[in-house]
């Protein structure tokens, strides 16, 4: 691994992993505690429409994804809030429509769509310097918004109805939160791809939730876990010649399952101890 660091693409990959873990650690905490995993999955998958649009328009697919994903996040938010359509139905429909648009756009693009596979499943090894700058900028936007509106997002996430009664602008904040999820998706596309984004949005935060009941500490822990997973996954994929995005996701998921399994065993063991104090 150390000798691999002499290559620029490896250094860029490490840096990309770090930048991705900042966005997914912070925003992922809201996704997990507010239980909006499904709509986040919808936003992530719909971003494929933007990748296709980028190809068709001849601009960077990531840039295309950014505008398209922001628009679809707002669209999903408004449709689920303001129409009578059940929320999960609306999300499911828009999820598939976004992907379908991507397929049509790519079909309309003359010639071959290079790197399509890496947008779907991620390839952290091919992140260019411009990609890193974009990720850094999006991270900065996300961190700034969360610092400025920490109290507001906390009130939104904990109890929307009570929030409304004390004057929290819940709908506007919710739409802003969905936009931050959209930006996070864009940051993560290079690392794990459209299909696997939802794993990095949820796993580090879910793991962090096991260790603290403070939202701020949960964010810090989630960023740390995200960074460990992306470094560890990158190293494993390098050593064993595996797909980097999928390796990162499987490593994260395995650690989470092991952690849940361990705490389950421990609590059962404690129960047994309490049940038979004499022995």
């Amino acid at each position: 691994m150390l000798e691999a660091l002499q290559y620029e693409f490896m250094r860029n990959a490490q840096f990309a992993g770090l930048l991705a873990s900042v966005a997914c650690g912070i925003v992922g905490v809201y996704v997990v505690v507010k239980r909006i995993v499904f709509i986040s999955g919808g936003i992530a998958h719909a971003s494929f429409g933007g990748i296709g649009l980028g190809y068709l328009a001849g601009i960077s697919p990531v840039l295309g994804a950014m505008f398209f994903t922001l628009a679809s996040a707002l669209g999903m938010g408004l449709v689920t809030r303001r129409t009578k359509l059940p929320e999960d139905t609306a999300i499911g429909i828009l999820w598939a429509m976004g992907m379908a648009m991507g397929i049509i756009f790519i079909g309309l693009t003359p010639g071959y769509a290079p790197d399509l596979f890496s947008y779907l499943f991620g390839n952290i090894l091919t992140v260019p310097r411009s990609g890193l700058i974009l990720m850094l900028a999006l991270d900065a936007i996300i961190v700034t918004i969360v610092i400025a509106l920490y109290k507001d997002f906390l009130a939104l996430s904990f109890d929307e109805e009570f929030g409304t009664t004390v004057g929290v602008p819940v709908e506007r904040l919710y739409l802003l939160l969905l936009c931050m999820i959209a930006l996070t998706v864009v940051v993560l596309i290079r690392v794990v791809g459209v299909i696997l984004v939802i794993a990095l949005l949820t796993i580090p935060a879910a793991l962090a939730k096991q260790f603290t009941h403070d939202l701020r500490n949960m964010m810090i822990l989630a960023v740390l876990f995200g960074a460990l997973f992306s470094f560890g996954g990158l190293w494993l994929s390098y050593e064993f010649d595996l797909a980097s995005g999928a390796t990162i996701v499987l490593l994260s998921g395995s650690v989470l399952l092991a952690s849940f399994g361990f705490s389950e065993l421990r609590s059962q063991w404690r129960k047994r101890q309490q049940a038979s104090p004499q022995n």
């Binding site: 505690v33 239980r35 400025a148 509106l149 920490y150 109290k151 507001d152 906390l154 009130a155 996430s157 904990f158 109890d159 109805e161 009570f162 929030g163 004390v166 004057g167 929290v168 602008p169 939730k209 603290t212 009941h213 403070d214 939202l215 949960m218």
Partner: peptide
């Protein structure tokens, strides 16, 4: 009506009641 698993302390729950007096963008 709230999620019992939500990571928030009693103190921060109570401060939330002051939201209307503080408004957005500022900490309590």
């Amino acid at each position: 009506l709230f999620d019992p698993d939500f990571p928030i302390s009693v103190w921060n729950v109570v401060l939330m009641g002051r939201y209307g007096r503080v408004g957005p963008l500022r900490w309590y």
